[in-house]
Amino acid sequence: MEWILLLLLGLVAAILGSIMGLGGGIIIVPALMILSSYTTVLEGITPQVAVGTSLLVMIFTGLSSTLAYMKQKKVDYQSGLIFFIGSGPGALFGVWLNKDINTDAFLVGFGLFIIVVSFILMVRKYIKPLKRMSKGIQRSYENDLGETVEYGYQPIVGILIAFVVGMCSGLFGIGGGSLMVPAMILLFGFPAHLAVATSMFLVFLSAIISSISHIYLGNVDWLYALALIPGAWLGGTIGAAINKRMTSDSVVNLLRIFLVIIGIRLIYQGITGS
C-alpha cells in the first residue's frame, strides 16, 4: 500500500509542480517526512534522505516537463542557462548546509519556508512587475493571443537570485521554482507561462547538480526514488499539458491552502517531535 502511495505522491507532486513551475519537491519532501510517522516503510527517514531522494526524482519531473514545454516553444533557454550560473553553485552550497542539519530544526525551518511560499503565491498576481531596466538583457515573447510581451533583466541580478534559489533547492530538496517563478514574473516581467516553462528547465539542471552531491553523500534511498519516479515522469508531462489549457488561478488557490496546512503540520512536528 505504501508503494502505491509513493507512486501517487510522485504523480500529484509532479502535476502540481509542472503546472506552477515549482518542481514538485516542495510537496514530496514534507510528505515523506510526515508519512515517516505513520508508515513502517518510511519509518525513520531523515531530512537528508528526504531531500536527496526528492532531488533525484525532480530530475525526471524537470526533464519530462521541459520536453513538453519545448514542444510548446515556451522555454527561454538563454535565460535558463544564465540563471543556472547562479543556481548551480547555490545548489552545492545548499547541499553543504543540509548535511548536518537537525531534524526538528529542519522541520520548523521548512514549515516556515512553505508558509512564506504560500504567501508569495497569494500576492504575486496582484503585484505589477517592476519597471524593466534599460540595460541588460532584453527579450520578447509572442503569447498564444499573438501579443508580443517584452521583458528583461540584469544578468548579475538574475544570477544572484538564482543562487538563493539553488541554495534552497539543495537545502530543502525543492526545485526552487517556488521562488524563481515569482521573481521572474514580478522583477523581470516574464509572461507567466514562459516563467513556469523556463523554471522547469532550471529545475532540471539544478536537480542534476544537487542530486549528484546527495548521491555522493549517501542521501538517496533508491527504493523510494524508484517508486516515485514513474509518477513524477508522467505527472511532469500532464502538468505541462494542463498549464497550456487552463489558467492556474484555481490551482494556485488550492496549492496555497495545501501548503499552509503542510507548513503548520511540519512546524508542529518539529516543535513537539511527534
Rank of each mutant, 00 (worst) to 15 (best):
Gly90Asn: 09
Gly111Leu: 05
Leu81Met: 08
His193Tyr: 10
Leu145Asp: 14
Glu147Asn: 09
Gln78Leu: 13
Ala162Pro: 04
Gly152Tyr: 02
Gly177Trp: 08
Leu186Ser: 07
Gly111Val: 01
Met180Gln: 13
Gly136Ile: 01
Tyr151Asp: 11
Met70Ala: 12
Lys135Gln: 14
Phe84Thr: 00
Pro182Gly: 03
Ser134Gly: 15
Ser178Tyr: 12
Lys131His: 13
Thr66His: 08
Tyr141Asn: 07
Val157Glu: 10
Val149Pro: 10
Ala91Thr: 02
Pro129Asp: 09
Leu92Phe: 11
Ser87Met: 04
Gly109Phe: 05
Asn102Val: 03
Lys131Val: 12
Val108Met: 11
Pro129Leu: 07
Thr148Pro: 09
Gly177Ile: 08
Asn143Met: 03
Leu171Pro: 07
Ile127Phe: 10
Asn143Phe: 00
Tyr126Trp: 14
Tyr69Pro: 02
Leu194Asn: 04
Cys168Gly: 14
Ser134Lys: 15
Trp96Cys: 05
Leu187Ala: 09
Ser65Tyr: 05
Gly136Gln: 01
Gln138Leu: 12
Gly189Leu: 01
Met122Asp: 13
Ala105Trp: 15
Ser79Val: 05
Val164Ser: 05
Val165Ile: 15
Val165Met: 13
Pro89Trp: 00
Met167Trp: 02
Ser87Pro: 06
Leu145Glu: 14
Leu112Gln: 08
Leu145Arg: 12
Glu150Arg: 10
Gly173Lys: 04
Tyr153Gly: 09
Asp144Glu: 14
Tyr151Trp: 13
Gln72His: 09
Ile174Trp: 08
Ile85Tyr: 03
Phe106Met: 02
Val149Gly: 07
Met122Gly: 06
Ile120Asp: 13
Trp96Lys: 07
Leu130Val: 13
Val116Lys: 09
Ile120Thr: 15
Val117His: 05
Gly111Glu: 07
Trp96Thr: 06
Gly88Cys: 13
Pro155Asn: 01
Leu130His: 12
Val75Trp: 00
Glu147His: 09
Val165Gln: 10
Ser134Thr: 14
Leu112Ala: 11
Ser140Gly: 15
Leu97Trp: 06
Ile185Met: 15
Phe106Thr: 01
Ser65Ala: 10
Val117Lys: 03
Met133Trp: 15
Ile159Glu: 06
Asn143His: 04
Lys128Leu: 08
Leu194Val: 11
Tyr153Ile: 09
Ile114Pro: 07
Leu171Met: 08
Lys128Cys: 04
Leu97Asp: 08
Leu92Tyr: 12
